[in-house]
Design a protein around this nucleic acid. Structure first.
Lengths: 138, 138
DNA sequence: CTTGATGCTCAAGGGGCTTGAGGTTTTATG
DNA sequence: CATAAAACCTCAAGCCCCTTGAGCATCAAG
């Protein structure tokens, strides 16, 4: 049996975060030692690794909960799980698209600033005046 | 003079957000009408547009406050403003790099899922087992 | 003068944790 | 076996950047 600290090291999820996940119902309440400390089996380590991986991929707590529910009904079709992952992929792509525009804009702003004085600073002027933007990054 | 609603429409910043910015000291407390309602001049509209633009580019409230401080000392060198923008650019680039990895991983996960049953779902298996990943997206 | 839109303040919520205080249990060492 | 350090516990609050809601006041149009 693992202590919460062992589990934390094994999965890379911080100790308070593990307790938080328990509170949020992502993992079921752990068994306790005689002195009321949490004890985990390797099954629980696997589930936490699953959660960690999904969080790393940017899935929300709610989406992860849905996936866990699905995984507990092995006869259900795969489509739902696929849809959750696909939605996340779409979200990630939207974020990338947006960040690319920000990148272009910031690049332009910083590379144009050759002045010495704030009064003539391109950064400040560009921020004050959206019209100086080439793209509509909003 | 603009009401807070007019200002909101003019800048795209929501009414409660304007009040929040005032509370946070990003904009100075507005003049008031006889009936205690906020009234804004076009100067204040410009400052709010500046804030909006900077937020859109992902700058934090603190960074924006720093830029506003700078812009009020026209004789100071431009370097500081440039540094703030450059830091934001670096942050954006880091985010893009990370999201690209997530994109690749999610793409791979979703496109491999041809099964009908959760029990054999690649999405679930891939999330459960980080070793199935091609990249170290953590 | 009434009505409906807009405004006000103050407090709480939300996501996903993190941090802190104040106390108990476990483990390593003497 | 006694002690001390490390790890654990609970509960509450903090963080960022707003958003939402309740309950009331003001304003512009008809």
């Amino acid at each position: 049996m693992l202590t919460i600290g062992d589990l934390s090291k094994a999965t890379g999820v911080k100790v308070p975060t593990i307790r938080y996940y328990e509170q949020m119902g992502l993992i079921s309440p752990a068994e306790r030692s005689e002195g009321n400390q949490r004890r985990y089996s390797s099954e629980e380590r696997e589930r936490l690794a699953f959660i960690r991986h999904a969080r790393d991929l940017g899935l929300t707590i709610d989406a992860i909960r849905a996936l866990i529910d699905l995984s507990q009904h092995p006869e259900r079709p795969c489509r739902d799980a696929d849809r959750i992952a696909a939605e996340q992929l779409a979200t990630v792509r939207r974020k990338i698209a947006r960040l690319r525009k920000l990148e272009a804009e910031l690049e332009r702003i910083t590379s144009h600033c050759h002045s010495d004085q704030i009064s003539d600073c391109y950064v400040i002027r560009a921020l004050a005046n959206h019209d100086l933007c080439h793209d509509d990054h909003d």
